[in-house]
């Protein structure tokens, strides 16, 4: 499915980086402000889908060369690792840890749950993009 429009292509070229930035911001900041892995994942997916619509399947494959299933595998693996690490320390599953990082006067509050959220993001992107591209491929070029 492709919409052949110069305006759309130009717009998408501008918007896609912004969407990705927004998603990363939402994922990292989700613990303290609206956002989080699910939202970030869906935002990324919408951005990628518009790109696919504007530029077609081939261009999309150049942008997104891996099969989405590897994203799902990676995301699930990441969340599982975060979930299991506390077990090794004798803590309950998924017990979160946090540290405060000082970077040039700025305090950065790092929570292990954020990593978990990143895993969620990756899974959501993998699943959503995977489903849409798969169904899109069925339609043919």
């Amino acid at each position: 499915m492709r919409i052949d429009s110069l305006i759309l292509r130009t717009a998408v070229r501008l918007v896609l980086p912004l969407t990705v930035l927004l998603a990363i911001y939402a994922a990292l900041n989700g613990h303290n402000a609206p956002g989080g892995g699910f939202i970030a994942g869906l935002v990324t997916t919408v951005g990628l889908c518009t790109y696919r619509m504007a530029f077609g399947e081939r261009a999309f494959h150049r942008l997104f060369p891996v099969h989405p299933r590897w994203l799902v595998v990676a995301g699930l693996g990441l969340t599982l690792v975060v979930a299991i690490i506390p077990l090794l320390a004798g803590e309950p599953l998924l017990r979160s840890a946090s540290t405060v990082l000082r970077l040039g006067g700025q305090e950065l509050h790092l929570v292990s749950a954020t990593v978990f959220d990143l895993g969620v993001l990756v899974v959501v992107v993998g699943v959503a993009v995977g489903m849409i591209t798969r169904l899109g491929e069925e339609l043919g070029p």
Binding site: F38, V124, V127, A128, M131, R134, L135
Partner: peptide, 14 residues
């Protein structure tokens, strides 16, 4: 629920 809905919908449509 929304996210699960999404997965179910994709599955259903397929």
């Amino acid at each position: 629920a929304i996210v699960i809905n999404f997965a179910v919908m994709g599955f259903f449509l397929t």
